[in-house]
Design a protein around this nucleic acid. Structure first.
Lengths: 354, 354
DNA sequence: CTGAAAGCGCTTACAG
DNA sequence: CTGAAAGCGCTTACAG
């Protein structure tokens, strides 16, 4: 059905049916074809059927560029993340992609990369309304940034963004951290380290800040003093976790337990501890965060969150606004819970008498 | 500089400069603006400078939909993968994204999901030439499929696709598997299991087939008999690896070594083995494949490949075709190498006398 | 319920 | 080296 035109010495090109072809075959105007195919009202049922059949016969697919240029809708959403390739973002991405694809929306990933490039992404997206909506993940936009998106008519849903009253979802990082550290204080630990944020964080993540808050609260609730030397950055990577653990072990009075703000950091830390001859959890307890796929297989006690599910839900929220024009204001708080495995136990010397 | 128009009771919309605005400001025609801005020849240097300045003053950005409709180029490439969210694809993705973004290209991810949806993706991409090029990863397209893409004028670069003579890259899976299994036979193992492919594989991955071939060759080279009961599927997941190991341990005569076709399967298998009370590598040796981020931290002996680097390179190959019109025919074979860590040793009873 | 026509913002022969 | 004009394939008031 795809005829070929040209036939000179150059590469042949497939000619796809245009809206004109469909109109001719269905014996109506292009305006009617456009209305019928997009399910708009004011089309006689019999006409609609004729158009639908003609379109199917010709395998007609509307040219997205032409639609966008004429109508302003691109059926594309942007996924704005600080980086790709990390476990968390990969999982979130796959959830978003599945929902977007099912709804017939294209997905445009944007990596903000560094601090300056938030502006770069806004410049790329805003002026031409390349996308109908944007899913902003862990990127702390200013009010002005959100304003630019709104002015451009781009709907926004956030994941993990504080100080934004618009639609979105996040977890209660402080509460989750309290849970993790409370588990350790409950076991009797008194010297509990935090492997957390990023020194000189270019992204202004709120995640490490909030988890630090929970850590601090849990110590206070247990009546424990806070020791600044036990709080070290870990960059949310395996390497960072390993380095952090090395630093902690080098201190004059090392911790008996560690709360790492991601499972990747926890695994890095655990490895270093074991290499140093420490038994886990006999001599050192470790709690992670995320419930990474491998957490179960290394027996890591951790805080579980459903990242893929969050991605799916966020995409649904955005699509609801785009398609149904439903405005869901406010932030959903998704659940987290403590999964106790084999890396936590009472501190050494407590008499492991059972 | 972005004026606002409208001002009724509805949402205000930002008005961005169009090519007409730039033309007026630079006192030339829109045709000249178009040529000057895209770096085409036949523009007087002084004119070009005037146009460039005018565009900058107005923060002009060409509307991609209009460009695409008029010119046929979309400055977008598709990344076609079987799935997202796995370590391998996430890493590859981040490599591709970095290069594409740097070149000013948008990236459109397509998940083929199941067998039928290869057609679905072609239907979505082909008729309207939504993308200029496609990076096809691990998806075994038929000659007809490749033909459709070529007819639509879409340049293709593959990663991990056999039986395709066009441009692309892959690793030598058979050789890598021989290396891994040869390491085990060299240590004296005679009962070596393979945790590999997928039963009833919907994607027709060539990866597991090729790695199985290498396994078989290595056994033969060592003069060892092949035992079908030691070859089990693992689905390339942690869970699959764990199940496979359970099955192997339940057999009457379990292996003394395992070659798993991915690190994720290897880690799942290792966990099951340790839970069953087996010492690794004392009683069971394990080799993985990929050099996953966590491999180093669980001490896994494995085959290393540079996945992010492959993604970057593949994107460069595709962009070279798109931008410079350089046709790189043929497949690059990227290197792999054996990384020996702490999960492999001589088989039990060999006298670990060193 | 339907159609003719204008217009979205570019690119590309074609003339000059 | 530059410009006037046609055209890419749609959507959307506006009439009827």
């Amino acid at each position: 059905l795809a005829e070929q035109r040209g036939g000179g010495d150059r590469r042949w090109e497939i000619v796809t049916a245009t809206i004109d072809d469909v109109a001719r075959r269905a014996q109506v105007s292009v305006a009617t074809v456009s209305r019928a195919l997009r399910g708009l009202p004011n089309v006689a049922p019999s006409t609609r059927i004729r158009v639908l059949e003609a379109a199917q016969d010709l395998r007609y697919v509307a040219d997205p560029s032409a639609s966008r240029l004429a109508g302003g809708k691109s059926r594309t959403i942007a996924l704005v993340v600080p980086m790709l390739g990390q476990w968390y973002y990969a999982k979130l991405f796959s959830g978003v992609e599945a929902v977007a694809a099912a709804a017939g929306y294209d997905l445009l990933p944007y990596t903000t990369g560094g601090p300056g490039s938030v502006t770069r992404f806004l410049d790329a997206l805003t002026p031409r309304r390349k996308v109908d909506g944007a899913l902003v993940v862990d990127v702390q936009l200013s009010d002005e940034d959100f304003g630019r998106l709104a002015d451009a008519g781009i709907d926004v849903v956030t994941v993990g963004v504080d100080r934004w009253r618009g639609p979105g979802l996040r977890i209660d990082n402080a509460a989750a951290a309290r849970l993790a550290v409370g588990h350790l204080t409950g076991l009797g630990h008194e010297r509990i380290a935090l492997i957390g944020g990023i020194d000189d964080d270019p992204f202004h993540f709120s995640v490490p800040v909030d988890r630090f808050g929970g850590y601090r609260d849990a110590l206070r609730a247990a009546g424990l003093p806070r020791r600044p030397e036990l709080v070290v950055p870990g960059n949310f990577s395996l390497e960072g976790g390993a380095e952090a653990m090395n630093a902690l072990l080098a201190s004059p009075d090392p911790p008996t337990a560690v709360f790492a703000c991601s499972d990747e950091m926890a695994i890095g830390a655990m490895q270093v501890a074991q290499d140093a001859g420490l038994r886990v959890p006999g001599q050192l307890s470790i709690v992670g965060f995320d419930d990474h796929d491998v957490a179960e297989y290394v027996g890591l006690t951790t805080i579980r969150q459903d990242v893929t599910g969050q991605g799916e839900r966020a995409a649904q929220l955005l699509l609801a606004q785009l398609v149904g024009d439903e405005r869901t204001e406010g932030q959903e708080v998704h659940p987290t819970r403590l999964i106790v495995r084999r890396t936590t136990g009472p501190p050494p010397g407590t008499g492991e008498l059972r």
